[in-house]
């Protein structure tokens, strides 16, 4: 594949290096001439000095034959425009953007960036999975419907224990779909289901309701 990497900071540098190592044709576009020279020397890949969000620079880079655009600068506005120019002016099929401010991730997707990558979100996800005391873990975002799948662990002295699940007031669009019990048995909770301590409840919810849902299921006496 022919891959354009814009921005040669820590992330861009290692990406370019790894992608070149597995045999892709890489062109790195970097504004800072010193940094560009460093990459050229160390990776041996082609570099172009210039502003990768400019139409002229991308034309020079042969963007119309690129299969993939990866924008890795430290500025979200630049990464967005780089991907939009690649897509709309040069018809690049896949665009990937580094999202520095995690609150921009959904917006970037809406604005046509195929893969917005937020390092903060990735690290946060790992922390949630690694630290068992964290009682809510994100599993999946369903971008098209703005719904998400989360797992919530019921605490040992939770107020939901011993109550029928139909009597627990979940937020209006949130649903408890599966319960994984200690030891690994899986239940699909019907109205008469009773939650137990340390149950892991798989829920479909929205970002807006997530906090209320967590509060309901993890409130303690």
């Amino acid at each position: 594949m022919y891959i354009l990497v814009v921005g040669c900071g820590r992330i861009g540098y290692h990406l370019a290096k790894d992608l070149a190592a597995v045999g892709h044709e890489i062109l790195v576009i970097e504004r800072n001439p010193r940094r560009a020279a460093l990459v050229a020397e160390e990776i041996g890949s082609m570099t172009l000095i210039g502003d990768g969000s400019e139409v002229g620079v991308l034309r020079e880079a042969g963007a119309e034959r690129a299969d993939l655009m990866v924008a890795t600068t430290a500025i979200d506005a630049d990464n967005l425009v780089i991907c939009q120019v690649a897509k709309h002016v040069f018809n690049v099929q896949r665009t990937v953007a580094l999202v520095n401010n995690p609150s921009n991730q959904t917006l970037f997707k809406q604005l046509g960036v195929d893969v917005p990558v937020s390092s903060t979100e990735i690290i946060m996800k790992n922390i949630e999975e690694e630290i068992p005391t964290h009682s809510l873990v994100h599993i999946l975002n369903l971008e098209s419907s703005h719904m998400e799948v989360v797992v919530i662990r019921v605490p040992a002295d939770g107020t939901v224990l011993g109550r029928l699940i139909r009597d627990v007031q979940l937020p209006p669009t949130s649903h408890a779909t599966l319960v994984i019990r200690h030891g690994g048995t899986v239940h699909t909770p019907d109205d008469d289901f009773l939650l137990e301590a340390e149950d892991e409840v798989v829920c479909v919810t929205t970002q807006a309701e997530e906090e209320a849902l967590l509060r309901t299921l993890t409130q303690v006496h």
């Binding site: 969000s53 500025i75 979200d76 506005a77 630049d78 967005l80 425009v81 939009q84 917006l107 604005l111």
Partner: peptide, 12 residues
């Protein structure tokens, strides 16, 4: 004076 900042702000 920055095109990219204007583009992001306007689309937001």
């Amino acid at each position: 004076s920055h095109d990219t900042q204007n583009a992001l702000a306007a689309q937001m």
